[in-house]
């Protein structure tokens, strides 16, 4: 019985984490479209609900009532599994995100590695969907995205090493606390820029949305999907974007820490600061979508392997030498 109560308690916590995440994913889609529209001097979705806030709910309702079409020549099990994998991976990563020093579902030792692992698994949903559709455009999209995500993961990994050198721990809460005096965005600003651009590529956002480049590949890996399965891909993608924003906020912008450590600011709960930082990063994501044209595929690969990887490696050497020379290396125990 005792065991059962623990399970229920955990399930309750998970529910209280996932429902807000899902609702905020719906809201973030609206925000994305609004920002995009404002940059182009349009109105964007403004009809359903106040300021069009309920637009995403209306869209979701529409998707639910649409028929799910499974192509007869597709590989049915993998075809159905693909959106589920995307959605699940986007949601399980939220388990380790700390909303304050105590508000975290799983405060594990290797939090940042877990986040990195889950975000690198995200490519499977896309590959599975693209391959199982048994159709040209989805397959091309899947192949593109596999190469793209693997390439940019490398530079994200090296950037994480930079931050870890300054922290000396893989725990996400330790990473946040290490930024008490100065956010890592200041000493590691070039790394923040590279992280931001790599995050765009990792989540298949414009200008790196080649897996779903609508002018060449119809909708890439999503071409054969319809109804709720398409919506799940779409939700998973936005949940992943939010996750990358959260990762950026924790690694570089001080996570749940208030920007100034003085009286009225410290009263605000950490979750609100984290959400504000995630929103700030997300608005940057949305602005980039609106103002930057799509990259060509060879340019994308060149940027990942020939520019970002050497730059971030050099920066690792610089950070390590600086910390070593000035005896600033964090020593635990």
């Amino acid at each position: 019985m005792e065991y059962l109560s623990i399970v229920f308690q955990e399930a309750y916590k998970i529910l209280f984490l996932l429902v807000p995440v899902l609702v905020s994913v719906a809201m973030i889609v609206w925000l994305d479209r609004r920002v995009w529209a404002f940059v182009q001097k349009r109105q964007g979705p403004n009809v359903v609900g106040p300021f069009g806030l309920l637009q995403s709910l209306a869209d979701a309702l529409k998707y639910i009532f649409k028929e799910i079409i499974i192509p007869s020549s597709s590989n049915k099990v993998i075809f159905i599994l693909a959106p589920i994998v995307t959605m699940t991976l986007a949601l399980i990563a939220w388990a380790v995100i700390p909303f304050s020093a105590t508000q975290v579902l799983a405060d594990i030792n290797v939090g940042i590695l877990y986040l990195f692992a889950v975000s690198s698994l995200g490519v499977y949903g896309i590959i599975m969907g693209g391959w199982a559709s048994n159709s040209k455009y989805p397959f091309l999209g899947a192949i593109r995205s596999a190469a793209q995500m693997v390439s940019y993961e490398v530079s994200i990994g090296v950037i994480i090493i930079n931050v870890l050198l300054c922290v000396g721990s893989l725990n996400l809460n330790d990473i946040v606390i290490a930024q008490q005096n100065m956010w890592f965005v200041i000493p590691l600003f070039p790394m923040f820029v590279i992280f931001f651009i790599s995050a765009l590529a990792e989540t298949n956002r414009p200008p790196f949305d080649l897996p779903e480049a609508e002018a060449e590949l119809v909708a890439g890996y999503q071409t054969e999907y319809s109804g709720m399965m398409y919506a799940m891909f779409w939700l998973g993608e936005y949940a992943n974007i939010l996750l990358m924003c959260a990762m950026g906020a924790i690694l570089f912008l001080g996570g749940w820490m208030s920007p100034i450590d003085v009286y009225p600011f410290t009263l605000v709960p950490g979750a609100i600061w984290l959400i504000l930082k995630i929103l700030l990063l997300f608005i940057l994501f949305a602005l980039v979508k609106a103002i930057v044209p799509r990259y060509r595929y060879d340019q994308l690969m060149r940027l990942g392997w020939k520019v970002f990887l050497p730059l971030s490696l050099i920066w690792v050497v610089l950070t390590a030498s600086y910390l070593f020379y000035f005896n600033l290396l964090p020593v635990n125990q």
């Binding site: 594990i108 030792n109 290797v110 590695l113 877990y114 990195f116 692992a117 690198s120 698994l121 490519v123 499977y124 590959i127 391959w131 397959f139 899947a142 192949i143 596999a146 190469a147 995500m149 693997v150 993961e153 990994g157 893989l170």
Partner: peptide, 26 residues
């Protein structure tokens, strides 16, 4: 051995198996 487990996920599942799949599909 949580470090080994995570590295296993990152290296084998996140990178090696993706390239494997890539080649097998082609």
């Amino acid at each position: 051995a949580e470090f080994l487990g995570m590295i296993m996920l990152i290296v084998y599942v996140g990178a090696v198996a993706v390239l494997f799949l890539f080649v097998v599909m082609m």
